[in-house]
């Protein structure tokens, strides 16, 4: 204790008073760097928490990606949807082929192929497995058919109008669009989408609890520090801030990990998915998380991380009072 006057007030006092905005910025920068270095000091614990959040977020994000892909596959299949025109039995093979040729030139038609009664019988014999049953029948029960492929890029309504138009041709007994199974697919996808929403809701709650509990333990561990802070008159917002940022970082890393996990899952499924699409004559390839979806996962991570931290902080911070 050598110096003369302690903490001397007076002219030496620094004149520059930072503005409110400067103070705020400075406080936040300090909280950000403080929390980041605190988390970096225990990387294992941080990563474990982030992984729990990441996996929890990846589940609904992955399911959502799957549903989106199936929906897209359905759309692309609809493009290559085929209509069958069953011809009257009295239409000759020549007339049928001619008709198919005419139909091909109509607008909105991509291709039309004539299948004679005999060809139909052959195809049925080959592919159905009921070949022997057919031998019992005296007559060929199958009608001649023109398979029409509407062009892919027109709306559903135009395709239906075209089909109705073709149905009125005198040679055509019945026109049929094979869309029942597509409608079923869409109904199932709708159902799954709702289920995904519910799962996402439940898992969002799980993220809240994980972050809230982690922050609660953090608060418990830093009880002494909080007591000192309260004693020297730190504003509540100041004491809260590092915990809220910690929650944000957990949420953010969790979001990044979730995106990576979904992307990795998609990548491992690309090959088998291409094979499956090939079986349906579809060019559809498996799409990863869209930019929007990825942004959504980030936002969910950040929001839930912050909210979980806020929940813990507002529950536990007020009960800590300095004791002397």
């Amino acid at each position: 204790m050598t110096s003369a006057k302690p903490a001397k007030p007076g002219p030496k006092r620094v004149a520059h008073q930072p503005s409110w905005l400067e103070k705020m910025t400075q406080d936040h920068v300090r909280a950000i760097s403080g929390t980041l270095s605190a988390l970096a000091r225990r990387p294992i614990g941080t990563l474990l928490t982030a992984f729990v959040i990441g996996i929890t977020l990846a589940l609904p994000a992955g399911l959502n990606t799957l549903v989106a892909n199936l929906g897209q596959a359905g759309d692309s299949l609809q493009g290559s949807l085929r209509a069958s025109l069953f011809l009257n039995d009295d239409v000759s093979a020549e007339r049928g082929a001619e008709l198919a040729h005419d139909i091909t030139r109509r607008p909105g038609v991509s291709s039309a192929r004539y299948i004679s009664r005999e060809q139909a019988l052959e195809e049925f014999r080959t592919f159905s497995g009921f070949g022997e049953a057919l031998d019992i029948l005296k007559d060929n029960p199958l009608p001649a058919t023109i398979v029409v492929t509407p062009s892919a890029k027109q709306p559903q309504a135009r395709t239906e109008a075209l089909l109705k138009d073709l149905g009125t041709l005198p040679e055509v007994a019945q026109a049929k669009l094979d869309e029942k199974w597509l409608q079923r697919l869409y109904a199932i996808l709708d159902l799954v989408q709702r289920a995904v929403m519910m799962i996402a809701g439940a898992l969002a709650l799980a993220v809240l609890i994980v972050v809230g509990n982690t922050i609660r333990l953090d608060i418990e561990n830093r009880r002494d520090e909080i007591e000192v802070m309260k004693l020297i008159g730190a504003p509540n917002s100041y004491i809260r801030r590092p915990f809220l940022y910690t929650g944000l970082w957990y949420g953010l890393t969790g979001g990044i990990l979730a995106c990576l996990l979904v992307q990795a899952g998609v990548m491992s499924l690309v090959q088998p998915a291409r094979q499956l699409a090939g079986l349906y004559d579809s060019q559809a390839t498996l799409q990863g998380l869209s930019l929007n979806a990825a942004a959504g996962v980030f936002a969910a991570g950040l929001g839930l991380g912050w909210l979980g931290a806020f929940w813990a902080v507002s529950r536990h911070l007020r009960h800590i009072e300095p004791a002397i």
Binding site: K5, P6, A7, K8, V14, K23, Q26, D27, I232, P235
Partner: peptide, 20 residues
């Protein structure tokens, strides 16, 4: 907690530490 700038903090803390 009062939002002093870094330079200012350095100066004041050293003055206080010097005093004790």
């Amino acid at each position: 907690i009062r939002g002093h700038s870094g330079d200012d903090i350095g100066r004041r803390v050293r003055a206080a530490l010097d005093a004790v």
